[in-house]
């Protein structure tokens, strides 16, 4: 009897080890075979995450305000002057933007192209800036007409990511800079076609032939309809022994500071969600 009791105790002590090994093996197999977690578990974790993200936003707003109180009056006056200057510059730049936008619409109409943009605005609930995954959690989901594959846009036409998961009132977007994401892009005035590779943390790189001349500041677009802006050529890295060179792309927005985005529908949906004129039969 004593022998049996000792055996039972040892087995009980080893149980956590076996459970750990089983979980490790299952997760490894799920990773190898790319098995996604079941839909109910995704809904559950989104539900659990909401209060934590609300708390996070509240804490960041409180700490932000606290530091503002500690700043000196002269520093605030200086910043105010700088911001006024920036506002004036932006206002004058906006005049050009409005004119260019109306010209573009006119030319599109002349060419017979009809590319209605169907946007939905969304707040970013969570952006794990230091995670290996470059993902955004957005507060719009199936109920807002969002579908997997929709493009995430910042500003007027800057694409930053794609929707990869949608639940009832929440969705997850993967950024184009996420590790392993490959995006077909068009570079420069000649619209040369290449693949842009994400490296995580807002880094996107294109590999081009060494002899191809690319100037810093040349625009890089995603070849979608309507064409979306991705960024500008920033750093060109050439190694003497390589036939190719690496071109780093500078995004026009800091992905860690984005709090609101627009979601461009792949397929226009609904009639209250977007700025498209209803089709006339």
């Amino acid at each position: 009897m004593i022998y049996l009791r000792r055996d039972n105790r040892e087995r009980s002590e080893r149980r956590p080890l076996y459970i750990g090994i089983v979980i490790f093996t299952v997760l490894l197999l799920f990773s190898v075979f790319s098995i996604k977690p079941p839909a109910p578990s995704r809904s559950l974790v989104y539900f659990i995450g909401r209060p934590v993200w609300a708390l996070q936003r509240f804490m960041s707003s409180v700490t932000g305000d606290a530091f503002t109180v500690l700043r000196t009056k002269s520093a605030l006056v200086r910043e105010n002057k700088e911001l006024r200057g920036e506002v004036q510059e932006l206002e004058s730049a906006m005049l050009d933007v409005d004119r260019i936008r109306s010209d573009l619409k006119k030319y599109e109409r002349m060419l017979g192209r009809n590319s209605p943009a169907a946007f939905v605005a969304a707040n970013v609930l969570a952006k794990p800036s230091t995670m290996p995954y470059d993902t955004f959690i957005l507060d719009v989901g199936e109920e807002g007409g969002i579908a997997v594959g929709d493009t995430i846009v910042v500003g007027n036409d800057t694409a930053v990511g794609k929707i990869i998961d949608v639940r009832g009132s929440i969705s997850k977007a993967q950024l184009l800079s996420s590790a392993g994401v490959t995006t077909p892009v068009l570079v420069g005035e000649k619209a040369l076609s290449f693949d842009a590779h994400g490296y995580g943390g807002g880094n996107i790189v294109i590999t081009v032939p060494r002899d191809l001349a690319l100037a810093v500041g040349e625009a890089v677009y995603i070849g979608t309809n309507p064409r979306m802006f991705l960024g500008e050529v920033d750093v060109v890295s050439v190694s003497p022994s390589d036939a190719m060179k690496l071109v780093g792309i500078r995004l026009p927005v800091n992905i860690f500071e984005i709090s609101q985005v627009k979601i461009l529908h792949s397929q226009p949906v609904g009639d209250t969600l977007f700025s498209k004129e209803p089709d006339r039969l």
Binding site: K36, P37, P132, T135, I137, S178, G180, V181
Partner: peptide
Amino acid sequence: LYGAPLWPGGGM
């Protein structure tokens, strides 16, 4: 919650 495919064509 945050996981995303880490290589082209899937890869969770």
